[in-house]
């Protein structure tokens, strides 16, 4: 149980998707103009990461990993399909996003109208595929660990995008040097936020 909690905290603060690995930067820069929309996108990312990482974990564990097909028949013990993982993961992500979109539309139209426009964007967000690939590379031991990693990274991404959106809303009133306006200053602020987040490196979990 403690291990699961540690992974959760670690993926939010220490291995933050944005500040440590720069995943999902494109939508992070494009959608962070106002806090309201960035909360929407952030929530959608938490949601999708929380679903795709465990599903991809099962896929990796029971189909793709070296020797994973042994449950089917003993003769498959030395089959290694891990080279297929990119295409399988992206297919799972694209179809899960489609599925989530349909389910949300059916059962919660209110949530759909606030998240709806962001969901298709998410299929090609590097943070989502990155979550699955990191899960594969770090070899988590159980489904619960993979899930907590997925949700944790989503929450970390959420914090980062809401933080930068709040700062960008304020910075609109300040006198930024003309060539640095917009994109340039956003990069530099993100860099400074990254330095601030580095202070979490001291936490030993």
């Amino acid at each position: 149980m403690q291990e699961i909690f540690n992974i959760f905290i670690k993926s939010i603060f220490i291995d933050n998707m944005i500040f440590a690995y720069f995943l999902g930067m494109c939508s992070y820069l494009a959608v962070s103009k106002t806090v309201k929309t960035s909360v929407g996108l952030g929530a959608a990312v938490v949601f999708v990461l929380g679903i795709t990482v465990p599903v991809d974990y099962m896929l990796n564990e029971y189909i793709l990993k070296a020797g994973a097909l042994e449950w089917l028949d003993a003769s498959f013990a030395d089959v290694d399909l891990s080279f297929l993982s990119f295409i399988m993961f992206i297919a799972i992500i694209a179809s899960m996003v489609q599925l989530v979109e349909m389910i949300v539309e059916k059962f919660s139209p209110a949530l759909y109208s606030s998240l709806g426009i962001f969901l298709p964007l998410i299929a090609v967000n590097c943070a989502i595929l990155g979550g699955s690939l990191f899960m594969q590379e770090r070899e988590y031991q159980s489904l619960a660990q993979a899930t907590s990693f997925g949700i944790g990274s989503g929450v970390g991404w959420f914090l980062a995008i809401v933080g930068i959106a709040a700062i960008r809303e304020k910075i609109r009133y300040s006198d930024v040097p003309a060539p640095l306006r917009g994109l340039g200053i956003t990069f530099i602020i993100t860099g400074l936020m990254g330095i601030a987040f580095m202070s979490f490196l001291g936490i030993k979990l």
């Binding site: 060539p179 200053i185 580095m198």
Partner: peptide, 25 residues
């Protein structure tokens, strides 16, 4: 470390936009 990459990109954008004024937002 990762944060400096962001700041270097910020500076590159700064320099580029200083010379090509059309790109300023």
């Amino acid at each position: 470390l990762p944060p400096m990459a962001l700041i270097v990109v910020g500076v590159i954008i700064w320099v580029q936009r200083y010379y090509t004024r059309d790109l300023i937002e």
